[in-house]
Write a protein that binds this DNA or RNA. Sequence first.
DNA 1: GTCTATAAAAAGATAGAC
DNA 2: GTCTATCTTTTTATAGAC
Lengths: 195, 195
Amino acid sequence: MGRTTGSHSDITRPKIRAAALRLFARHGFAAVSMRALATEVGVQAGALYNYTPDKQTLLFTLLQDHMNDLLEACTSDAAPTALERLRHFVDFHIRFHADRPDEVFISYMELRNLTTENFATVETLRRQYEDRLEAILRDGAAAGDFAIADTKIATLAVIAMLTGVNTWFRAGGRLSLDEVITQYWDMVRKSVMAG
Amino acid sequence: MGRTTGSHSDITRPKIRAAALRLFARHGFAAVSMRALATEVGVQAGALYNYTPDKQTLLFTLLQDHMNDLLEACTSDAAPTALERLRHFVDFHIRFHADRPDEVFISYMELRNLTTENFATVETLRRQYEDRLEAILRDGAAAGDFAIADTKIATLAVIAMLTGVNTWFRAGGRLSLDEVITQYWDMVRKSVMAG
DNA sequence: GTCTATAAAAAGATAGAC
DNA sequence: GTCTATCTTTTTATAGAC
């Protein structure tokens, strides 16, 4: 008793999502026309408007969903020490982002193409994610395990370093992701540790 | 004696450069029309083509000039130890990039909008800059001062961390640039130092 | 849900007057 | 060197048939 034969919604919708991520990451949001997107999906341009009211909403949905996925996946580690929780965060951040290079790229590159209201929504979610790391660093500093001059700066510095992996890492390259994580964890750990 | 009265070349050219940097950084290369650029400059669209053969060449020139400025300003420090040269690099990198937020933003965001050939040219220059830091880290590791698993990864990790300052730092904010540099230097130093 | 066709606006780039 | 005017193409989005 399923859906009618003519309903391609649950096939076309994920295809649009995948194609948009790929093309926006490769060429940039403004450089990708709805025609080019439709061609990549395998439909005509007009059909896209069954799934999004306009191009802007399509971009916004991609970024919002990505941030929600990130926040949902970033479970608070139950480890007792801040050092262990930091290790967990580093491992999680690198793996999660390495799995979604297009989402991550778009999330950093195309914020400026969001409307003011949509930007504010995405920015709030991003801030929530940063707060997870900041809480770990604050706990470690309070316990005397970490030596950090300014917690907020340290948060941004660590996230920038970790997210930078995405600019060069490719699976099957010289180093495995495990090796990469090992070295980044070593650098992050040392950078915040007390003497 | 002087130039002819009708020649506005040395006035308009830098205005185009400044306007293009500002608009490309704010809205993205593909999202800025030649008409919008002309309006920002204060001329008509057709006049722009006295200064660039096309839009692509305009973008390429901005990025190429920026990388050449960077390489020229990044003088090799004569300090005897790798640690001192690293400190010099951190200070230089943060200051140089903080002074040119638009150039830096565009250099990371709009690489994908360059033609294959133009991209290769800019990429070669970027690689040369990375090599400056990598040489410092290699020297320090060879001397036993640094403990780094992979020099190339450490290079990219440090540059990503330092360039990340540009995503949030604003002059006149909570912290001075000197304070920011002090903390980043502390984190970078610790992250590469041997036990 | 997808198609064809089209409306209406905007794009990159050029020609020729001044 | 800049202007106005224009050519040609492409854009986002909609209407109506199937």
